[in-house]
């Protein structure tokens, strides 16, 4: 990767502080264009802090944040952010929620709807255009939220434990949809999770963070599993198990450390 100007995200020696509390220290994270990176770490290690830094919501106390080679000033206009809890507007239908960002951009409601409908179809919600969020299941709401983020065609997609509240089967379905969409239109993706299975299933590379405070990157593992991946068959392969062990050898001690500081 080094030497190529096309790095989508380049965090170099980033330090994030909240008052006296150091959340993230000497963080280095490079994400290539169209690369899918998963970030795992023990709870409270500042995973979300990294996303907020990439979005431009947080300014590092020191260090360098570059987006496609350019230093980040203000908000990052290349990124789309999918939050852990979906923030759909309960008074808007599924299609109006998907088109929300377009309306914010100044497009007319009709234009936004026309663009939103194919996106609902892409996430498997054709026929649900007129449903309100309360008429959708948890997994369906996640898909609306995913379409809402992706319709803006961000070059960098940030996802903060988006599927953590779902049951295992629904989560698998979401993985399949996400991988299909990503495969069809490759974007850079930073995916925060605490679920190792999820990280290995989805990503090109898994980055492991140390326990907080002052967390940093302790290692990374390239996921060599071939693509396109079969989400349901993947987990039982020897290769998958080997990768799981390798990442756990990095992560396990950090998780123990985080328990030790909490108790």
């Amino acid at each position: 990767m080094e030497g190529q100007p096309a790095l989508a995200v380049d965090l170099h020696d980033v330090l994030i502080r909240f008052g006296d509390f150091t959340a993230v220290k000497s963080m280095n994270l490079q994400v290539g264009d169209t690369e899918f990176v998963a970030v795992v770490g023990p709870t409270g290690c500042g995973k979300s802090t990294i996303l907020n830094t990439v979005t431009g919501l947080l300014k590092p106390a020191s260090g360098d944040v570059r987006i496609f080679g350019r230093p980040l000033t203000g908000l990052n206009d290349q990124s789309g952010y999918m939050l852990q809890q979906e923030g759909l507007l309960p008074w808007k239908t599924a299609q109006d929620n998907v088109g929300l960002g377009l309306v914010f951009q100044g497009k007319s409601v009709e234009q936004a709807r026309a663009q939103a409908r194919p996106w609902l179809a892409k996430v498997g919600l054709k026929g649900f255009e007129e449903r309100y969020p309360h008429q959708l299941s948890g997994g369906q709401r996640k898909r609306v939220a995913m379409a809402q983020t992706l319709i803006m065609e961000p070059r960098i997609v940030l996802m903060d434990e988006p599927f953590s509240a779902l049951d295992v089967h629904t989560r698998r379905l979401m993985h399949r949809i996400l991988l299909d969409l990503w495969q069809a239109e490759r974007r850079s993706l930073i995916f925060i999770t605490h679920d190792l299975d999820e990280a290995i299933t989805l990503a090109d590379r898994v980055v492991v963070m140390s326990a907080g405070p002052a967390s940093r990157m302790v290692g990374e593992v390239k996921i060599t599993l071939p693509r396109p991946r079969d989400v349901s068959a993947l987990q039982t392969t020897d290769e998958f198990v080997a990768l799981y062990r390798e990442i756990w050898s990095l992560l396990g001690s950090e998780v123990e450390k985080s328990y030790a500081t909490q108790n």
Binding site: G87, L100, F104
Partner: peptide, 20 residues
């Protein structure tokens, strides 16, 4: 969360007022 999400979708002040 709804507010944060709308902001992340780059809602302007008047958009926030009108839609949220």
């Amino acid at each position: 969360v709804v507010l944060a999400n709308a902001r992340l979708l780059r809602a302007s002040k008047s958009s926030l007022l009108r839609h949220v």
